[in-house]
Design a binder for these strands. Structure first.
Lengths: 354, 354
DNA sequence: TTGTACGCGTTATCAG
DNA sequence: CTGATAACGCGTACAA
């Protein structure tokens, strides 16, 4: 089916392309009658504007680009959902790319998005991104850019993220208040800021409660297979410290789940022998046994907010209004479940706002 | 930064736009020298072709559209990963949309993709899609279309899917061979074909093994909250049948996981008191306790294959070659884990090809 | 080897 | 109220 153009409608009605265009766009300077004729015919022929031509003419694509490290990740898949929802509301479409945690790929994808003429870019940086020329390039091109979750502080653009340090601080403080004293931390790799911040939050919570920080209680998870990291480090921890550890705060839920598995396999009771506190509130944390206490990051909200801000910047740019970059910190919450509630029989489940 | 065009390069070098264009595209009828001058300048100015203009001229966008019911779904997020990988290899970008299982939305999204001029569309239908005019429209527009996973048999286009019936048949047969006799089925809603097919496979396996089919052992899960469905139906099942049931085959892993939870809460041992067999091999099924036996659908392969076929059709269309629609059935496999292995102590974990 | 001219489909300006 | 004309940036048949 050959797609119908303004020209065809114009010829059919013996009027000019200009008039057809105006009629369709509801301009006031078209007679009621011609307008009706045009609209009717357009309807009948199922006219759709050629978006390439419109984009060329209007210099905007009505598309934004989104780059994330990995689609197969509960957190990101929800972020995406939030972005898609807002994009739809704004009549925008979303090109999705995943960097697979590779800097080079991320860089290439930025170039692709720029060459495609997207109106804005949302990106969550790969763990291996340590230089930001590619982001500077976006800014130089005057394309609205927003970093979310995995951000770079030095890049001059809007950002949406959580306060990892505070969230970790809150979680560990909660454990301390519950009476746990020897609290280990299974941390992430040295690089991503999130990993560092959560570690710092852990450490600070200990110190603020007069519990000496013991580096021997910190285990590194950097095999990119979180579950196994949790399992293996749990094994190592029990070898190193016997059963003297009260609780573990892990950088992400999956690591806690690995620990649960190890405990299951070795007759160690969670939370009675060892309490656990995760991070991210993966869906599976609510169905595993025992249910896992964790930190809710509100990924949907992160996606929504990021997209809203980006579209606002796109609009402002279009209207030549000034843009000031926003830094939005999405509040986190502790989700308390069984894994941190020693010797209580009830499945208490409460959300704590801090 | 104003983006640089052919015209600017031409002016700078005092040659025609045509020559610049030809030089950049490696045409043979350009002198070595001018070619070099053009390439150098283009490089220096970081020239990027305006994709709107190219698309308008060439009548192709180098974009495909992908519609899925939900991004927050382990299966789909992996399918997406497969699609993105292949798209990248083919130098294509992907616009992602989610229908949220709503027919009206899916229909609208098809229109949006068509109006955007995508070169092809991959879609997994929403559960509420029972009419296919919107798909016919795509076909009428001569845009390559491929259905995956949630397909419609009557639509004339390529399809990639699994044999749900056989997979279910294999799973239930496995249970039977293991010695289980009273096997319940927690099925899905009446509508999606997958749900029907898995049920039919279940039924057939029973009959082929001379086990009478008992409709009372079939429970319906249709609250769209699989986990709760599993939990609640488990409760109901034990009320209805006491502990006479050997095993349950569930339409998806999450429902099995709900059952596990119910069993945990009520001192029922899986698999010793009740064996479970899920479907889809969600990641969480490998870390839950007990690990869940399930059906591997190879979503990555589904994504890859779908994209490959679509790009082949796009290419053929471009070259005016004939297109014949393919129906590819991706083989499934049983993943045997603890939940179906009564009274074995070892965590046997084997994959069975059927 | 280079350049002219046209068209892709739309929108904006301006003259009638 | 209507329409002619130009422009967006690129690619290509054809002329020079």
């Amino acid at each position: 089916m050959r797609t119908v153009t303004l020209k065809q409608i114009a010829e059919e009605l013996n009027i000019s392309v200009t008039t057809v265009s105006k009629a369709l766009k509801g301009y006031s300077d078209v007679s009621k009658e011609t307008k009706k004729r045009v609209l009717d015919l357009a309807e009948r022929l199922d006219y759709t504007p050629n978006s390439f031509a419109v984009s060329l003419r209007m210099r905007q694509s009505k598309i934004i680009g989104v780059i994330i490290p990995d689609t197969v990740h509960y957190f990101f898949s929800i972020v995406i959902k939030g972005i898609l929802k807002v994009a739809e509301q704004h009549d925008y479409m979303v090109i999705l790319m995943q960097s697979n945690e590779k800097f080079e790929l991320e860089k290439k994808q930025i170039d692709l998005l720029l060459s495609k003429g997207v109106d804005g870019i949302l990106i969550s940086l790969s763990n291996n991104t340590k230089r930001f020329d590619h982001l500077q390039k976006v800014i130089k091109h005057d394309i609205p850019l927003l970093l979310f979750d995995k951000i770079a502080k030095t890049v001059n653009c809007s950002k949406v993220y959580i306060d990892d340090r505070k969230a970790a601080y809150d979680a560990v403080t909660y454990l301390i208040n519950k009476g746990y004293r020897r609290i280990a931390h299974f941390r992430g790799d040295l690089n991503p800021q999130n990993s560092i911040d959560r570690f710092l939050g852990y450490k600070q919570a200990l110190l603020d409660n007069n519990i000496p920080f013991d580096p021997k209680l910190v285990y590194m998870c950097n095999n990119n297979t979180d579950f196994d990291d949790g399992y293996n480090n749990a094994k190592q921890m029990f070898e190193d410290h016997g059963h003297t550890i009260d609780a573990v705060f892990t950088i992400t839920d999956l690591i806690s789940i690995g620990i649960i598995k190890y405990c299951d396999d070795n007759g160690i009771k969670v939370p009675d022998d060892l309490a656990l506190f995760g991070f991210s509130n993966w869906f599976m944390s609510s169905v595993i046994n025992p249910e896992l206490s964790t930190v809710e990051q509100h990924p949907f909200k992160i996606g929504e907010t990021s997209a809203e801000i980006l579209f606002d910047e796109i609009k402002r740019k279009l209207n030549d209004e000034p843009i000031e970059y926003k830094k939005v910190v999405i509040p986190t919450e502790l989700v308390i479940r069984k894994s941190s509630e020693k010797s209580e029989n009830n499945p208490i489940k409460k959300v704590i706002n801090l």
